[in-house]
Design a protein around this nucleic acid. Structure first.
Length: 371
DNA sequence: TCTGGGGTCCTTTATCGG
DNA sequence: TCTGCCGATAAAGGACCC
């Protein structure tokens, strides 16, 4: 397998710069409201010099760089650019797995028989993307997804890193553990506390230490990845398995009526997405985030799939009430999600009793009341 | 006045039916 | 009738990713 990982450089910010060239050479932050509760989606390289990075609160970004330009995300615009980029890439490498608007894996083995040819292909991708959109991207080429991904991040922006077969583990070893995909804040903290700070150190961990630090299958998986071993193939199917909408309030909310109104609105929005994709959902989930940032969710499953907004909204309200009975408190966010999606709508047969075909919670294993 | 929104996958626990 | 075991499924939470 020869696989490349492509990653557009500071994608959202780069698109905003193309749309408005005056922004170039200024620190630019794409994301939410710097005076509200928004976070940074992408900062351009100028802004990164001030320590601004993705997921940082916009308020903090403003503090770090008061003269930065803040613009709100325009996802539909990014989607258009992304489409052109991927059409262009498919012109060079036909088999691709998109993992986001701005990144994905390419089956380079299909068009190259060794790593030298693979490098030419990767260069061709960079050149054609730039020609088609003026956007720059970074690529990593290797024998597995993890290594390709770490490699694409290695020299940004505009970088190209080829890691030939046999050199994977040695390439990964010096990187900070956090750079390994799958190591998030929790795993990082546990590893670091035990003195495991590099990917190489994780790769060298013995079974006993590994089980202690990262119990379960995660540990084994991450250690394999740290050694450059990753048997995942390209994932070509793209069917969604859930759809959700959520919203953080400007100020925390306790008023049940306003929460219900919000959930009904979201139920409608979710239903619209469902109908657009011609699908129905069997499970509805309400998500709550309390002031202390802890998250609760309650869900219920139906016998048949639905795509009706008010139905989803009412179920979501009932779930919210249940959750607030279990744990009352002010909320900073609520959300509605649906899952258990299927492609076809079940036809409604008029003369059949509700008991058989009605859209009611099955109640089979749903506790009717707490405790 | 720190900390978004949209996802995926995995694990644990409870429940049900045989 | 009681108990235990097993598999399937639901619910809930946690971690992670872009």
């Amino acid at each position: 397998m020869i696989v490349a990982h492509v990653d557009l450089d500071a994608f959202f910010a780069a698109v905003e710069e193309l749309e408005n060239p005056e922004l170039r050479a200024k620190p630019l932050v794409v994301g939410g409201d710097p005076h509200g509760r928004g976070v940074v989606a992408t900062a351009n390289y100028e802004a990164r010099k001030f320590g601004i990075h993705s997921a940082m609160s916009c308020a903090e970004a403003l503090r770090r760089c008061p003269h930065a330009v803040f613009v709100r995300s325009r996802h539909s615009l990014y989607r258009e650019y992304s489409q052109v980029v991927w059409e262009t890439i498919r012109g060079v490498v036909p088999t691709v797995e998109r993992t986001g608007l701005d990144e994905g894996y390419l089956d380079v083995g299909e068009v190259a028989s060794d790593f030298l040819q693979a490098r030419w292909i990767a260069e061709a991708v960079q050149v054609s993307v730039r020609a088609a959109t003026s956007l720059t991207c970074s690529l990593g080429v290797s024998s597995s997804k993890v290594v390709a991904k770490v490699a694409s991040d290695y020299r940004k922006p505009g970088g190209l890193t080829v890691v030939p077969a046999g050199t994977e583990a040695a390439f990964l070893a010096p990187f900070d553990v956090r750079r390994l995909p799958g190591v998030g804040p929790k795993a990082e903290a546990r590893l670091r506390a035990a003195g495991v700070t590099t990917v190489g150190a994780l790769a060298a961990l013995g079974d006993v230490d590994l089980r202690r630090l990262l119990p379960g299958s995660v540990g084994t998986l991450l250690r394999e990845r740290a050694r450059g071993v990753d048997r995942r193939e390209l994932e070509l199917s793209t069917a969604r398995i859930s759809i959700s909408v959520e919203n953080t309030f400007e100020r925390d909310l306790t008023d049940r009526r306003r929460l219900h109104d919000e959930l009904r609105r979201m139920g409608g929005a979710v239903a619209e997405h469902l109908r657009e994709s011609g699908r129905t959902a069997r499970t509805v989930t309400t998500k709550l985030r309390y002031t202390d940032f802890s998250i609760r969710s309650r869900s219920t499953s139906l016998r048949v799939g639905i795509d009706d907004g008010s139905e989803i909204g009412e179920l979501a309200c009932g779930l919210l009430d249940r959750a607030l009975r279990d744990r009352p408190g002010a909320l900073r966010l609520v959300g509605v999600g649906v899952s258990g999606l299927s492609d076809f709508r079940q036809l409604a047969f008029p003369a059949v009793s509700d008991d058989t075909f009605g859209h009611y919670p099955s109640g089979v294993s749903t506790p009717r009341r707490p405790l």
